[in-house]
Write a protein that binds this DNA or RNA. Structure first.
Lengths: 216, 216, 216, 216
DNA sequence: TATGAATGAGAATTCATTCAT
DNA sequence: TATGAATGAATTCTCATTCAT
């Protein structure tokens, strides 16, 4: 909003990187607030404090801007995930951390959920044009496979768990609750985003996943 | 060009109920395909085979049409859920059936997922204006509470499971996988909607939930 | 608004006169509130408590309905004017009465002003199609001519006053003040419709006209 | 068909001031011809020779365009009025000039009358949002107060004449005659806008006002 | 690198009017 | 006499995008 640099043209000297970042930030916020269809190029320009024309200069069109935003969003979560170093903690703790991380990341970055929603509405049309997206995800699967294997070999986890399947479950448990909190709290007539409710959800999800994984 | 009335005026005789149903059906398909923002009233009219004006005659605006569609969609799933008679089967089987039903319903009605996505993007703005939506969901919670209690009293299920929490988990496990299948299959570079993949997912979800619920 | 007869169809039995009057009343209110262009046939039907189709049954179209309303409005003021019996009072008093009557009639019937406004915007397009309108006004001119003549012959009034000219002045003095009271009170930043302001205006107008007419 | 841009794109070079003026001119004509409700944005664009979208670019909406037109219209008459320098001529002549000016201005600018009509139909809704309109009118009242005072002090005019009241009368005498000339000439079945009729009216109005003001 | 001016193709919504009973 | 259902033609306003500098 009150970005000083947007006010005058003197404060916005020729700085390509900065402008591009401002545009991506603004676009992320706009797409998250209104979805791809509802987002307005005018508002993005205003939010970024740049002339609308500049957006087209750097990003071909609304659609490729959306893809750029998407890719940067995936990079964000994946790089933080990497930083968890799950291969270096014991399996049960690794799972706990992954669940908690996913949960907290979604809470901290609600735009990520909305972005995915939009992209799915459009049948991953944009993502399918991305060349780097798939490569970005193999480390995640590798890591989780490693954790599961260590858990199984240590006699703690059940056998035959598919890491992709499990990841989708872990993500889905948080995603549905948080991404659909508006409709869920309406239909169940119950607050879902209060501090207590959040703690309960994290606890429930952890119990659920570990109750399944850990053999007795 | 392809004016509906040009086909034949006999195909749309004066029938208020029929016209309204046709409009709702067409709107459901359109909203599912394009989301609220992307849906076009023109296309809805064409799909329904009615004059665009008639939509406004029966439904105030695009937004209230959307709400009407949403309400009917919730009615659809909830009434089929009721028909499962979960209170009359033993607890483990009841949970199995609920998971399988949810999974299959989402597969059979992908529009339902898209509709929810859209509504959440709009922060349940429409649903919050609905008067009947909350009442529609209490039986579901009741039923699930009953199943959980019977399971616990029979020494089969663990204690202290919140039915709403569990329902959200069961729904979320299917919802995320199916609703985000486009992005997921892209990022994991793996087909998720083939017959085999579907069977595996259902099996995984059932194992996950029962692995958690059933005490040893 | 709360017209009982509009509520149910039993209370609106086949009564052509009543329906027509209800429609005219409703149309008068609607045209006064929104002008010809802004008036809505839907709202007129609602206000009248009749089906929209019925309006077309009795009155050909919106435009002829407008003419019917106009004619009835002129009939209203002219017939009350006749009832003043100006030919039977002495000239100065007759002028006083005419000014006061005009002023009070416009206050009591603001719709009349709005109707005239609309009709003039449309260059009297409708009125020009009326066959009875001109005949309706000759008595008025006659009466005023008689008053002026008696005044002159009695040595009270100045000579050579054109009755039509005078009538337009008398009407204009009230019409502009009342019909434009919204803009006038805004531009002069002063209330014009309070009880005191109204008395002052009537007094000013009477002084103005008599100050001119009465010779010393 | 007759798309403006099709003529030549050179005729509309990038000139913000010019475009805005063209739009205001076109809007004035359109609003005068059809009133606010009847005016069409399409026609305004065509009249101005600009793309319809440009109107919304400079003026938010039809309504704020209307306000802009209104304000400019008031500025027009008030500034010409100022140029009369009424404070520098003797009182009787000043009144004569004001009456004649008002009369001639209305004749030369019939749009002004229609505009006021429309604004009053809408209860000064737009004007009330204007910040500058009231300030625009105090000089006028001042000037007239000065004339009246000089006239009274010189023993020529009667005492106690309210300048606002008098201005409304002077304006009203012309306004009603000219603005309602269509209906008036119809109901009185007599031409009002011929050269002779006009002279007579101006003479009548002057006699009326001075007959009232000037003491004997 | 950066921008204010300008636009064509739609978008939702409105409205007087007619149809069928 | 009376009405609910249905419609074609506008109408205001929007939007991504391009032009000229």
């Amino acid at each position: 909003m009150a970005r000083a640099s947007a006010k005058t043209s003197e404060t916005r000297p020729r700085n390509a990187d900065r402008s591009q970042k401002d545009i991506l930030d603004a676009a992320l916020a706009e797409f998250a607030d209104y979805g791809l269809g509802g987002a307005r190029m005018d508002r993005i320009a205003e939010r970024a404090g740049v002339n609308k024309r500049l957006i087209y200069y750097y990003f071909e069109s609304k659609e490729s801007l959306f893809l750029a935003v998407l890719e940067r969003a995936y990079e964000g979560i994946r790089s933080e995930e990497q930083a968890l170093n799950l291969t270096q903690v014991e399996p049960v703790e690794a799972i706990r951390r992954l669940i908690a991380f996913t949960w907290n990341y979604y809470i901290a970055h609600p735009e990520f959920l909305t972005l995915l929603n939009s992209e799915n509405l459009h049948r991953a049309r944009h993502l399918k044009q991305s060349t780097k997206i798939s490569a970005m995800h193999s480390p995640l699967v590798q890591t989780l496979a490693d954790v599961l294997e260590r858990g199984h070999k240590g006699g703690i986890f059940r056998a035959g768990v598919d890491p992709v399947q499990l990841y989708i479950s872990i993500a889905g448990l948080s995603y549905f609750y948080l991404g659909n909190s508006h409709t869920l709290s309406t239909i169940f007539d119950r607050p879902l985003l209060g501090p207590k409710a959040k703690l309960e959800r994290l606890s429930h999800m952890t119990d659920l996943v570990l109750g399944y994984l850990v053999r007795d």
